[in-house]
Design a protein around this nucleic acid. Structure first.
Lengths: 343, 343
DNA sequence: CACCTGAATCGAACCGTTTCGATAACGGTT
DNA sequence: AACCGTTATCGAAACGGTTCGATTCAGGTG
């Protein structure tokens, strides 16, 4: 049926093993022979059968990609994961690795799935884009012996054993907060993510350090937690608006930010005139009224380097966790204030 | 190293072929034997080696997924494709098929890639989520003999030969337009997608039919084309605003819609007081000022049924193209007008 | 009791590669 | 002319399953 390497070998007048060597650019095959084999392959329209190759080599050149995004509906998350995937794809493509999707529908199912895939050697490794560290399937992973890279820093106790890629989230929050402090803001609301995410701790820390640097005391009422949703961002700010005053808000998630903006609007706070706002970047941030100043955490880079690390691991090269730099993008949601601070 | 079916067979005291039969729930294997084999497999923590299985069976239980989205940055597209992928995944998962990603970085590279993958039998079939029909790689596909399903209707000349899933785009545009007409609007701007997409023709048709139904003459100046971007949506409406009058706008792409809204705002047109607006649905539409009335084209369903069709094809069952229904979601961007129509 | 039938099991071939130890060919030394 | 070391090629054994024709065995029948 399909044309096999045997057909190529026959046509080129060489043995199968020589044909294989020629096709795989192995040394020790004479230029003429190689040319003959390549020619024959071309004429017969030969393409290596990956299934056979995989079996013989014991690897699939496939990477499993764990994405909670398939579960979530929020478009900001979609965009984040989309960028992440682009980065991962960008790194894998040149190395001829391809990506297999695993969705986190529910943990049990995922664990079962992973068990089959990991032990069944369907993929050579995994990239985990799951932001929390409650991973029941981690055990499965470890046990299977397949290499994996996590996007997002694991808790300290695991961080040394696990390869990961992440931003410096202490610094992310520090920079966002310090930016506002530098412009005169003193009462800064910080809407953090749920504490089950490791980055939430780091960002909390960063916020505090920034205030400390500027000699501003921490008002615990200005530190709130919310789920990464529109509704919850809305909820916390709505609840706070009568209670405490603030002249700026740091909300490092686009979806929450959207909710926060709505809550502010409802309470008659204009941005940036009454309250300055800063968030993490996302396509949408550009298009809002006003366009939002944001920290670009570079999801493409996160993905790209996660994949690079995994590929290095697979190639037997030495690797290490990697911190991706972030950048502040100045837009219209933070303005003036230097003069009329301390409202 | 890893535990093979031979180990299981030995432990269960049966032959390899019997073990295989037992593990695969084949008939003609006695209950006791099956139990023994399963028990042995459990004890040894046996998992079938997919690579070997693939080779032996000549199929991979993998589906190639072509996504232009990895190329695009627009978050509305991200969201759309995210939903699409969720649907596809939702259909494939229960059948134990998994998804392999192919990104359309550039057509040449993609074609080369597909050639390898299709001929190399890395996947059992493809799902193409590429909205245009200029597919240089289609030839490769046909030639490889692998089944595929397209999301989006091919041009008429091909539609009968190709399996696809799509909305009834004539009806989508008809419904959106008729909705406005029913509320008294007579001058309705229609911002369409580029004509290289087959759906753009259909939607144009739908718009005209709706006007015809209501006995409203078509003003060609109110029919414009724009790329599926924020900037281009902005551009066309900005250019039009001084020239022609309209009391409503139909713009069936969220990204364009965003641009259109900005252009309207710039020209002092309030929505819905001065101009009513209707778009296709997207998470974001809910959260805009005002929340946008929209046609939900059900991307999840599109994906789900595309996958279902492909799986049927792979199972040798009869299949047919499928039209996914849409639904109008009423929100705040279309209001009143019945009284003070004909401005 | 020999024969037949059908259910359960077995053995071996096969899927299409890669890999590795063995072999052949060849030019250069002694 | 025998020997040696390279260099290029070959043959056969994996890789770990599935499949299918052959075989065994038990029970029923003439």
């Amino acid at each position: 049926m399909a044309v096999t390497i045997r057909d190529v070998a026959r046509r080129a007048g060489v043995s199968v093993s020589t044909a294989s060597a020629a096709l795989n650019n192995k040394p020790f095959v004479s230029p003429q022979t190689r040319a003959r084999v390549l020619q024959a392959a071309l004429e017969l329209n030969y393409h290596v059968n990956r299934m056979a190759r995989n079996l013989a080599m014991g690897r699939t050149f496939q990477i499993g990609l764990l994405i909670p995004a398939l579960l979530e509906h929020t478009f900001s998350a979609s965009h984040f994961f989309n960028q992440l995937m682009r980065g991962i794809y960008g790194a894998c493509r040149p190395e001829d690795y391809s990506l297999v999707l695993f969705a986190v529908e529910n943990e049990d199912d995922l664990t079962r799935q992973m068990t089959h895939w990991a032990h069944g050697r369907s993929v050579d490794g995994f990239i985990i884009t799951h932001p929390t560290w409650e991973m029941p399937y981690r055990e499965v992973l470890e046990q299977s012996g397949l290499p994996y890279v996590v996007i997002g820093r694991p808790p300290d106790k695991d961080a040394s054993r696990v390869l990961f890629v992440d931003n410096d989230n202490v610094q992310v929050a520090y920079d966002a907060t310090a930016y506002l402090l530098a412009r005169g803001h003193r009462r800064i609301l910080f809407v953090n993510g749920p504490s089950r995410y490791t980055y939430a701790h780091d960002r909390n820390e960063g916020y505090r350090r920034a205030l400390h640097t500027y000699g501003v005391p921490v008002d615990e009422r200005l530190l709130v937690e919310a789920e990464l949703t529109f509704v919850d961002g809305y909820r916390v700010v709505d609840a706070l608006c009568g209670q405490v005053t603030f002249s700026a808000v740091v909300v490092l998630n686009p979806m929450q930010a959207l909710g926060v903006m709505h809550a502010l609007a409802k309470h008659g706070c204009r941005v940036p005139e009454d309250v300055a706002a800063i968030t993490t970047d996302c396509e949408m941030a550009k298009y809002m009224h006003p366009p939002l100043t944001a920290v670009d955490i570079q999801p493409y880079q996160l993905g790209y380097h996660a994949a690079t690390i995994l590929l290095q691991l697979l190639a037997g090269e030495p690797t290490a966790p990697r911190i991706i730099p972030h950048a502040l993008v100045e837009r219209a949601s933070t303005r003036r204030m230097v003069a009329q601070a301390h409202r």
